[in-house]
Every structure is written in structure tokens, then in C-alpha cells.
Design a protein around this nucleic acid. Sequence first.
DNA 1: CGACACATGTAACACGTTACATGATTTG
DNA 2: CAAATCATGTAACGTGTTACATGTGTCG
Lengths: 212, 212
Amino acid sequence: MSVRHGLMALLAERPMHGYQLRQEFESRTGGTWPLNVGQVYTTLQRLVRDGLVAPAPQGEVGVDEAVTADTGTVEYHLTDAGRAEADAWWTTPVRRGAPARDELAIKLALAVTVPGVDVSAVVQLQRTETMRALHDYTRLRTTTAGTEPAELAFSLVLDSLVFQAEAEMRWLDHVEARLARAARTRATTTAPTSAPAPAAARTTDTSAGGHR
Amino acid sequence: MSVRHGLMALLAERPMHGYQLRQEFESRTGGTWPLNVGQVYTTLQRLVRDGLVAPAPQGEVGVDEAVTADTGTVEYHLTDAGRAEADAWWTTPVRRGAPARDELAIKLALAVTVPGVDVSAVVQLQRTETMRALHDYTRLRTTTAGTEPAELAFSLVLDSLVFQAEAEMRWLDHVEARLARAARTRATTTAPTSAPAPAAARTTDTSAGGHR
DNA sequence: CGACACATGTAACACGTTACATGATTTG
DNA sequence: CAAATCATGTAACGTGTTACATGTGTCG
């Protein structure tokens, strides 16, 4: 629904062409989320179908209703219903009740339940990837620090990505810590008397485990 | 792709029915992400089509190839290619290079660039919603604290949601702070001599935390 | 003229969601 | 027997993604 509402938000500012919508959407988010032009038009079609947006052919301006010399370009604008929808978007928070599927969380949840998976290795790989992304973000941020709305917007988007990536890193640390604790508990409960190998493996894991 | 890979991960443990796959997927994630049975079957179809999964009709076990007394139930299992794919999933981190569309980030990025939008109000509404979700999570966590794999998995998922929600809260605070700073800068640069109202509004903003 | 940005669309496909239809098995 | 659970699927729809086709305007 991001694109749908995003386009409506842009059209609330002023009527625009489909092509323009794409440019505005991308520039205001610093190109973080590229938007294919085709999707703009398909989404616009759906918005028109739902009566939220209406097209107005741009021509040499006929005085009456008939359009003279249609140039083929179309300017889209919000209908009243569309404006209401756009307003409703601003006054309705993004639902966090039924969270969106998080591939990483699903992956690790399954990893700890499926036997034979080296969870630590998975965590380690993800940590590297997330760190890499984090570096990319901070590198990007140094190059931009303006006060104009568009630059502010991009800066906020970047901050959002950084905050999320940092949270992910913290969570990965947390997962590793809990795994180590669980392994310890398991070792003492399931094999209290005879379990020399697991104990050795455990100490090796936390210290030499190429992670942090 | 979460469901697709999730099903493969489950099938890597042991062959299962479609119905079972749904139960396992949901129980191991604590019901955080409900999975419609229909989607399991359509996804399985695609996996079969792609040669990653193969169905085996369950019957009264005919000795030769002909199946005697087919009960109508089907057990799905990974093919060699499917097992390779599953292994590849574990050894490939979730890509953070091209981040998934974050509706909240998009929303706020557009909010600060579209004139006439009360960004502070949007932030405030979202803060309330995110807080509510955070409370729900912590309330859920108190009821579960086991060490069995499934409970550990759910616990980790919950932690992930908490970490994310906390990051979102921090980001919302951050956005508000930057907005206040931008408003100050703007007030001094665009109207250095005559701007008493903005200054008054600013002090009200940061102290009377109710909303803006 | 040729390349490039502007501008509009269609087609095909993947994934996800909901609702519906159909039957077998278990259990109160 | 009736209801719930187990079990398998189909149909329709919404959104998102990519690739392709088509044409205009501008500028070196």
C-alpha cells in the first residue's frame, strides 16, 4: 500500500503526470526505493478505477469541454474522495498490530527449531551483511546534510535505515547470547554427568567463534 | 520469499503434509505470522513446478509403483535441488542492500515534503500506536519463558519485534527533534528579524510534549 | 541525424490474502 | 449423529516487479 498512498500524497500537493510522480517519489526518498514507471501507471489505473484519482488530458486548452490538440500527456489529480483518503492516511498510524513478515526473524526462528542448522553461522553471516549495509548508510549520510525539505526527507529516511540496522545488530547479539545460555542450560540438564564434548565445544564457540 | 523458503526449511527436517506445514510454521513463530492454508498449497505447487519439492501420495503402501488405496493425503519432500536451495538459504544473509519498502519511512519522508501536513501530529499518532504494540509484546513475553526450541524460537521472534519497535520509537523521537531544529533554523534564516510566533510555538513544542 | 530525456502504457509473472468447495477422520 | 479437526485444493483479487512497445521533444 506504500506506493498507492505515496502517489496520493504527492497528488495532494499538486496534479502531476505519471512520469513526474515517479521522479518526485524517488527524489524525495533519495532514491532509496526505486519505483518503476510501469507501476506508477498501473497504480494510477487502480486509483482511477476506485474513484480516488481522475485524469485530465493536457492539450492546447479547448475553451469548452472538447479537448483540442491532445498532446498525449495526462495530468492526474485527486478527486474529493481521494483527498479524503489522503487526509485519512496522515491521521491513521501505520498498523503494528499484525507485523509484516520479517524474513530474518522467520529465518532464525526456523533455524533454531530445525535440527542440523548452524545457527551461529547464520547469525554471523547476517551480522556481516547488516554491518555492511550500516557502513553504506553512514557513508551516504556524510555526503548529504542539507536543510531543504527534500534533503531533510532523505536524511530522515537514512536515519530510519540506520536505526533499523542497529536494532538488527543488537538483536543478533541478543540471539547469540541466548543461544549460548540455552546451550549451557541444555548441557547441564540433558547430560549432567557425561558431556565433555559439548562443554569443550561451548567454550570454543563463545571465545574463538569468529564473530564479534 | 519468506513463506517459500520457510516451507523448504521445514521440509528439510522431514517430509510433511501441507496442513502440517502450516501448523509447524505458525507454532514455531508463536502465531506471530498467521499463514493461510491455501497459500501453503499454492506455494507448494510453485515449489513442485520449480523442481524443489516433490509430492508423494500416502496410501496403504503398494509394493510396486501403482498406489493402492490412495487416502487422498499427500506428503511433500525436498528434492535434491530443493535441499541445495534450503542449504543455500542458511548460508546466504538476508539482503539489506536494497531495503524493503518501509511504509512509515515513506510516509514521513513525504509528510515533510508535502506542504500542509502536520508532521508532528503524524509522528505523535505513530508513537502511540508503536507504544501500544510494544506493550502488547512485553505482555506476551511474560506468559512465555521456556527453553524448548519452539518456545525459544517464539521468544526470539518476540524480541525481534521489541527491538524493532524500540528502534521505531527512537527514530520517531529523532524525527521530532530534527523537525524542531529545522523549524528553528528556518525561522532564523527565512525571517531573522520578524518572527515572534514561530519562536513561541517552538518552546511550546518541546515542553508540552502532548502532541507537537 | 542520433542520442537522450520525457511520457504513456501493456503483458506477464510472483507473491500474498481471503473466501469458498470438498471430503475424511475423530470424538463427544 | 453432529461438530470439530484434519486435509486438499481452486478462484478471485490486490500489490509489486520486470520487461517490452510506442511515441514526442530537445539538443548537440
